[in-house]
Write a protein that binds this DNA or RNA. Structure first.
Lengths: 353, 353
DNA sequence: ACGTTCTTCTGTACCGCTACAGTACGGCGA
DNA sequence: TCGCCGTACTGTAGCGGTACAGAAGAACGT
């Protein structure tokens, strides 16, 4: 069967193509009887609706929003687990409410195809990207409106972030209040520059990383606490476990972790060394992922609302699309106290070999 | 500045628009000097490449593939955790290698916007959908080529599945070989029809669910084992824990679980009741997610390669797009024996109150 | 009766690109 | 010298819609 177009329906009903178009896209432009008749005829012909590609060209909007992530999707998303999916879900659902869909913009694999250049989108959400992320320049050149999530603010691109620093401060203050004066920090190492766990120059400089570190240090330094900082990559987990072991050997009475996953590693390592949490050592996570409450003991951590972050990004983007001025968003964080932290046990150092 | 089009570049270089188009899309159609010159001029004008929307209309292909999921993305994906993300990642990466991108097809929220009808796509992957999933009919009417993943085969749509039944058989056989003769099954309840945990009519009838159940029963029945079946919904987890408790109270010496997450629930519940795993009760999971190896004890489970499943779906789709005959795919599963299973402890029933 | 306003439908001109069928011309074999 | 072929470039005709500015007639007020 030949392809069904607006024209073929118009011919069959005996009206102009424009009227058929209106029947689908601007119901107020024609009488409801005629519209009914047109829609019925269209249904008879098996016509579902105006061709989205043609409509996109004519209207100048495609109805999709790109999601740019750094590295292969597998790498960007899979390492951190559930919260990325939660973010993506929130973005998809919220966009859907605004009549749009998300398209994943993978990095360029070959010369011929480059999603950031070749995929039809109206706007883009930039997530988990660093300065070298390929695609950003192309999006910018195409004049695609963007927002970033969890990123150092870039000129001209409204950022959506959480109060990483405030959350970190609250976590550190919590430990200080519990009397901890020798505190370990397990932070994130830049995947691109592996190095010794205590080589702080290899620390990831992305926004959440540096903000969290800043928050911790502000409070710990002000309290004159001793700080032992160690860096670990997200994967493989075995490395994080080793680094955690090293950290615990430094005689700290508490550990502030970059993420719940890291905290999990510390818990496991502590157990393997016969250290009780929180009696011997307190542990604080970050993010309050599902993992946090499920661990044993349940983790004291800093909560962020990942879904809200995704929704805020969409809201900001929609506002931009509507011509409103871009505005930075910072979502609150909240310290959630569970059972992995308690008062400092004095003289833990003395137990060490 | 006015929008830069092929025509504006053509005018500036002094060639026809067609030649500029060829410079970008069919390099073999013009001399390389001219191409160089055109590309340079285009770069000067800030032209990134042909407009994807216009190209889509002219070529008749959009370069995106839809991913249809049931319910809001949040519901479909978030419940099961990591493996969905893994699947999506694999699909995105593999599509990217074929010059395409994934677009998430969310369900219809209002009359005006319906992704399955209104989003420009060349093909679709149907995942985690049931018969009532909205959107399927629209895709079919649009004549969009599809594949399903983890679904009961539908006429005209090539399915990509794993050998759920074989994996379940292997798991059950493993228990039988270990001497278990009273085995619990913790299967998945249909989210749409809540009911008593032992009301088997509320069992989910989707493909993986029914296949796994069939595999378990085949082997257990053949071995004349007693079987106690209980159903739990994916969420909330507390319900699964309750159901697991009930199951353990039935004096089973082993439990076959629909997923690793369920197995996790059984482990936790067992621990809470003072039952040692595997000494008092053996537990088998399904899927071999990251969770499985991380649990204590590490879980005996049935491995499936989720990423391979995603890649296979893309391969099948690409073949269909190329006009090849659709072909069903069944990927192997493999029993992974870890430390949550051991020989049946005789007379466990006697311990019960 | 006549101008005005609404409602309902139509005609034309694109949206920005690509497919395809040329045209022009230099080189090459006989 | 002529025909033939391959290479390099061009002209035209869409792809399937939508925006926008009419046009035609009915309804209405004075």
């Amino acid at each position: 069967m030949a392809k069904v177009t607006l024209q073929s329906i118009a011919d069959k009903v005996g009206v102009s193509r424009m009227t058929v178009s209106n029947a689908f896209s601007r119901p107020d432009q024609l009488s409801s009887e005629l519209r009914r008749k047109i829609l019925d005829t269209a249904a008879d012909l098996g016509y579902v609706g105006p061709d989205p590609a043609a409509r996109a060209l004519a209207r100048g909007r495609t109805g999709s929003v790109g999601m740019l992530i750094n590295g292969r999707v597998g790498e960007a998303f899979a390492t951190d687990g559930s919260s990325d999916l939660e973010l993506l879900s929130a973005v998809a659902d919220e966009l859907s409410a605004h009549g749009m869909a998300v398209t994943l913009l993978t990095p360029q694999l070959d010369e011929k195809f480059f999603p950031a250049r070749d995929v039809a989108i109206d706007a883009a959400i930039v997530y988990s990207c660093n300065a070298e992320t390929s695609g950003l320049a192309e999006l910018q050149q195409r004049g695609i409106p963007m927002v970033t999530i969890d990123e150092n603010p870039r000129p001209g691109i409204p950022p959506v972030n959480i109060d990483d620093r405030g959350g970190a401060r609250a976590a550190a203050q919590h430990l200080v209040d519990l009397g901890h004066r020798r505190v370990g920090i397990l932070a994130l190492q830049d995947a691109e520059k592996p190095g010794a766990a205590d080589d702080l120059s290899t620390m990831s400089v992305e926004y959440p990383e540096s903000e969290r570190m800043a928050g911790w240090r502000e409070v710990l330094d002000a309290a004159d606490a001793e700080v032992v900082t160690r860096l670990a990559p997200l994967a493989p987990r075995s490395v994080a476990a080793e680094v955690a072991a090293d950290l615990l050997d430094q005689g700290v009475t508490a550990v502030l972790c970059f993420s719940d996953v890291f905290a999990h590693g510390v818990l496991t390592t502590a157990a393997a060394r016969g250290l009780r949490v929180p009696d011997d050592v307190s542990v604080v996570g970050f993010d309050d992922t599902e993992l946090a409450a499920a661990l044993n003991p349940p983790l004291t951590t800093v909560r962020q609302d990942v879904a809200a972050k995704g929704r805020a990004a969409v809201t900001t983007l929609v506002a931009r699309l509507a011509g409103q001025a871009p505005e930075a968003v910072v979502l609150p964080t909240e310290l959630v106290i569970r059972r992995s932290t308690t008062t400092a046990r004095p003289g833990r150092q003395a137990d060490l070999p």
